[in-house]
Amino acid sequence: MTERGERSRGPVDPGVLEAVSTLVIEVRNVVEGLQGGGHASLHQGASVEFAEHKKYCPGDDIRHIDWRALARTDRYFVKAHEREVTLRCLLMLDCSSSMAYQGSRVARSKLDYARVLLGAMAHVLVRQGDAVGLLPFASLPLPHLPPDRKPEYLPALMNRLASLQPAQDGGTGFVEAIHRAADHAGRRAMIVMATDLWDADRDVEVALASLASRGHDVTLFHVLSPDEIDFPFDTTATFKGMEGGGGVQVDPALVREDYRRAVIDMDSRWRRVTGEAQMDMVSATTDKPPETVLAEFASRRHRATRRR
């Protein structure tokens, strides 16, 4: 492995990269792009994919006249082909302090996990020739990397991913981050957000739905530690908020059931919200290998594209 390779890999383990090397991530809808690529464009253009016939009009390129149709119908038709363009993908990474949580049963924090997940995804997308950008967010705005499809761009993105640290305090700044994403993603881009969704309120739902309604392919990777799902603690303790807001003293044995039920409720609510807004939501528990999560996501997208 060369030094360059090390740098380009960033936070992503080689094993993960190998596992995702064959993945193809497809967009949920048609997207808009300036350069040709592997994704269906909203506009028709040069491509091998036939779209429809249309009457020849002066000014049309005579190279596109369907001569066979002329022979059969004695009319001039022009073959219209779908235009395949490159994808603009904006990877949003939640860097709030709650993402620093690791839990007792896994070896890395949620932020590290999300780093690997998004890094691997960036690899896949760049390999596909898509443009990938990075927008980390926390309570305060963080510098972002605009989408770029050049392979040389990948190391910079990886380094940026690797250098991200969880915020020390404060909230997540969801809404502001979504607005920034809308500004930077352009039109009909793929927006992938890795977050734990804690403190994501109704405004966040609205903002995300608005983002999706603009034609963006929005995917939420819901990154949680297993401890956040099971609440396996057994000693009465004061649970201190990682994003401020004080703490609360509880006997885990007494609230465990209610907590688990609340986590399930939250998951259900977000699935409903994302479903209604034509968004994808992927559970990414940190005890689950990121390549598996990514593979499942890619597979799901592939199936969805086939059905389309």
Partner: peptide, 13 residues
């Protein structure tokens, strides 16, 4: 008390 940092404190509260 034993203090445990935890993200979902709002829900716990």
């Amino acid at each position: 008390d034993l203090f445990i940092p935890f993200p979902a404190v709002g829900m716990l509260r």
